[in-house]
Design a protein around this nucleic acid. Structure first.
Lengths: 346, 346
DNA sequence: TCGCTAGGTGATATCGATAACATGGGGCGC
DNA sequence: GCGCCCCATGTTATCGATATCACCTAGCGA
């Protein structure tokens, strides 16, 4: 009766499945089945087991379960920052979509650097997730190689990487920003300025800038009005400072496009503070359709991207592969929609 | 040599520690030690092992490690919503503080309901976290009992629960809102209104309302101007709608206090949209010191609470107990600071 | 009546790592 | 020169669950 020692009365330890099995008078295998839905255990037995579980306050140990079943039930997701509401929305899309599946999320933030991303990927792979969702297509070589040998489905999001690792759920930031430029050009604006961060750390930001530059060139409009300000992610405050610098250098700028709604909002508030009329004196537009852009006054023209849907769809793709519903046909790409939302600021 | 079968050439499987050990010509125990810093392995051996690790692309399996060491390296944290920047800041405080410790975060959202919290607690306890951080002091009985029998340190945050489970890192929402009222009363405002959500789901919101009501009574000011609007968390948009309803019912209201900066911002923008002057026609204040409150125009008077610090300190308390640096003396309470930040809106 | 099927349950062997103890070889003090 | 101790490493026994296969008992058709 060596095993029974585990349930020696008076000993206070976290109960295991053996304790439950002994108390219910069944084998651990039956307990295991009773606790997993969809397996065949007679009603009477299941009730006995549930009673024992409640009496003992037993909680299944998934670490142990993962080891023998070789399935951890984890999904990893890596976003640049959770303090950015666009990515927080994506994270929520992921979480909501995972909820019914019993999979659990491991979430990490890169602070917009590929080095931190690599560290996170390595740390998370130690937990043997069954799939992983990344933001963007920029990764270190080592990260790529780690992911490759992990042998799990990978979904890159929020961009359309030139060299996808596996699946992609995203959109072209370049095109989206180009569409915004064209929409505003149609309204008659001619002298466009752009506000973004200084480095290429934020690849989506860089792509938007490229989209801006290219669209301006295609339309034959005055070029070169680019203000870089601050390390990405560029904040509300920096948006305000950047617009000042824009107006000092190019006072006749008619429309300012910003890398995100946060900087656009900062720019807008700074202009209001200085008594400028928006859009009469200057038009302002952002990117991302943050809540603040919709409800501030004047409302900010922006590009709505389906943040929540990106998370949701990325997760669905992952689940399909994990559940084996689908043969893997690599490098599948899901395009998510975007649309320009015109508001009072332009 | 049965074990050697695991490294049979040509077989493609995820390498285990046995594979590394064989390749490096040492035992798995030595590999295990080499991969854990702070254990004594000779330099030569460690290099051989690292070479084997790199050759094979080996990644440690922590599920297995957790099982034998009986330490999972997980810390669980449960917040109402990650889409609220106050809680996102707390989450970041937790993450940052965990970074150097090798502990990994399991993050979950309750959507402001105790039922969902209970589910999350149960799901997370299956992963055997070494500690858990909760938001607030409202929990179901079952949640309390699950936590008790889990035998891990618990930190409740963001409030001062009447009946703490274990440790607490937070502040009195009631007092903080009271301080805001008193500060504004000192400036001469007399007719105060309050905007908050409709239900008690958001316990911090309820506490702030109580703090408001009590302060108004203590000061002998006109009472009763309370507008409840929307299911918590109340959004920017709802703040705008609520202020309209406030002004319809009590047009002579001098100062409107909102449960959070988001609703305050919505109220402010709605007033601007209607051409009202803030603070001359109406003063507006919020709670939480969100980024938007600092940089909108006019800036919103608010109560700054140390969101990031709450996460940081909660994590520190947890780590101290986990690391055993400290004997447990239950129900320790850490008060975090708050301060009124006066801006242009009042 | 027999055998066959299927549902319910149990016995055993792992999953991949680490704790705990065992071992062996050198350095150092007296 | 002897003995002790410490460092580096190996051996063995788990950690707590589940996959797999075996087994048993009804129920049912031929």
């Amino acid at each position: 009766m060596a095993k029974a020692a585990a349930s020696r009365p008076g000993e206070s330890h976290t109960p295991t499945m053996v304790d439950v099995a002994l108390r219910a008078g069944v084998s651990t295998m039956t307990v295991s089945r009773a606790l997993k839905e969809g397996s065949r255990v007679s009603k009477a037995t299941r009730e006995k087991i549930m009673a024992a579980v409640n009496d003992l306050g037993y909680v299944l140990d998934q670490s142990a379960g993962s080891l023998s079943s070789r399935k951890t039930g984890f999904v990893a997701a890596i976003v640049p920052s959770i303090n950015n509401s666009n990515f927080a929305d994506t994270a929520r899309g992921i979480t909501d979509e995972l909820e019914s599946t019993g999979l659990q999320l491991l979430l990490g933030y890169t602070d917009y650097t590929v080095e931190k991303e690599e560290q996170l990927i390595e740390a998370m792979l130690r937990r043997r997730p069954e799939g992983i969702i990344l933001t963007g297509g920029a990764h270190t070589d080592r990260a790529r190689s780690l992911l490759k040998s992990a042998g799990i489905p990978v979904v890159e999001t929020w961009e359309l990487p030139a060299k996808p690792i596996d699946q992609v759920v995203g959109f072209s930031n370049e095109e989206a920003m180009g569409l915004l430029v064209k929409t505003l050009a149609k309204k008659g604006y001619r002298k466009f300025g752009y506000i973004g961060g200084t480095t290429s750390r934020d690849t989506r930001g860089s792509q938007r800038r490229e989209g801006f530059v290219r669209a301006i060139e295609e339309l034959g409009l005055p070029t070169g009005r680019l203000v870089s300000f601050g390390v990405p992610p560029i904040s509300i405050e920096q948006g305000g400072q950047a617009v000042v610098s824009m107006l000092e250098r190019w006072p006749d700028t008619e429309a300012v496009l910003c890398v995100s709604d946060l900087s656009a909002f900062g720019a807008l508030m700074e202009c209001k503070r200085r008594g400028m009329r928006v859009p009469q004196d200057i038009a302002i537009a952002g990117f991302g359709d943050y809540e603040v852009a919709a409800f501030c006054y004047p409302g900010i023209t922006t590009v709505n991207v389906d943040c929540y849907g990106i998370g949701q769809q990325a997760t669905r793709r992952l689940i399909q592969v994990i559940r084996g519903d689908e043969k893997r046909h690599g490098q599948e790409i899901v395009l998510t929609g975007y649309r320009v939302v015109e508001r009072e600021s332009t």
